[in-house]
């Protein structure tokens, strides 16, 4: 029974951010994912209503790790923990689960995996490299969410200690450095392949790379690479058209 509820919750966690708003952020999404887990409370309608109502309030975390909060909150509700304590648990989980997840996935695993795929492509592996990377990543993504949901649901209020024991924060540093290495390796390799060995293209890549480093180092605001590229292209096209 619990397994079926957890499975339904997992499915809903995979579409967590559909109802994202600036007011509640993932609030409604996390409530939707928590609903199946709160079913044991249905025998006591008042308690069930109160728990469901609490679950809809402002929440935001990394989407892959939000299941840790959904599970922990549901466990705490089932065990009858006081409402204000559950609210504080939810707020306290949001920050770390957002920060850890962003560092681990958005600036760690995702760039690392994309760089690995780019490198393989640059070395001539062709489109299957992208297909293999996609499938492997998909498996990791679903596994991480299922793991988090299970961890939260098992531990409830003890989730802080369980998270600490999971050493998730130790992985962050390692993954970040690995991603840096992979991106560094990928750029010249895929760049050479994209430029097809042409010298002007390679020179532009190197010059652009130096510009990107400079822009990251100086603290003043410099337009992003996407805007700069579009402006440079527009100037070149206009210049080309205006010269006979």
């Amino acid at each position: 029974m619990a397994l079926s509820r957890l499975t339904r919750s997992l499915g809903r966690l995979l579409m967590l951010q559909s109802s994202w708003t600036y007011e509640r952020m993932q609030g409604v999404g996390i409530a939707f994912a928590t609903l199946p887990l709160l079913e044991p409370l249905r025998d006591d309608p008042a308690r069930h209503r109160e728990a469901v109502s609490r679950s809809t309030e402002l929440f935001n975390a990394h989407p892959y790790l939000a299941g840790i909060a959904a599970g922990a909150i549901a466990r705490a509700e089932i065990e009858g923990v006081a409402g204000p304590t559950i609210q504080r648990l939810k707020t306290a989980l949001a920050g770390p689960l957002g920060s850890l997840g962003d560092q681990l996935f958005w600036i760690g695993v995702v760039p690392g995996v994309m760089a690995a795929m780019l490198m393989a492509v640059g070395l001539g592996a062709g489109w299957p490299a992208a297909a293999v990377g996609l499938v492997l990543y998909l498996a990791v993504r679903i596994y991480v969410t299922a793991w988090g949901l299970g961890l939260g649901y098992r531990t409830g209020l003890g989730v802080a200690a369980a998270l600490k024991a999971s050493r998730l924060d130790d992985q962050v540093r390692r993954v970040g450095l690995g991603a840096g290495l992979m991106v560094g390796l990928a750029v010249p390799i895929v760049g050479r392949w994209l430029a097809n060995g042409a010298t002007p293209g390679l020179a532009a890549l190197a010059l652009g790379g130096a510009g990107g480093v400079w822009a990251a180092l100086v603290r003043s605001r410099i337009p992003g690479a996407r805007l700069l590229t579009l402006v440079a292209m527009a100037i070149i096209i206009l210049w080309h058209w205006s010269t006979p």
Partner: peptide, 19 residues
Amino acid sequence: AEVAGSDFERDLYRMAVPA
């Protein structure tokens, strides 16, 4: 005041901060 007085909250926020 509340975070300063709560072990589990301090543990969680500490985890959010990188080396």
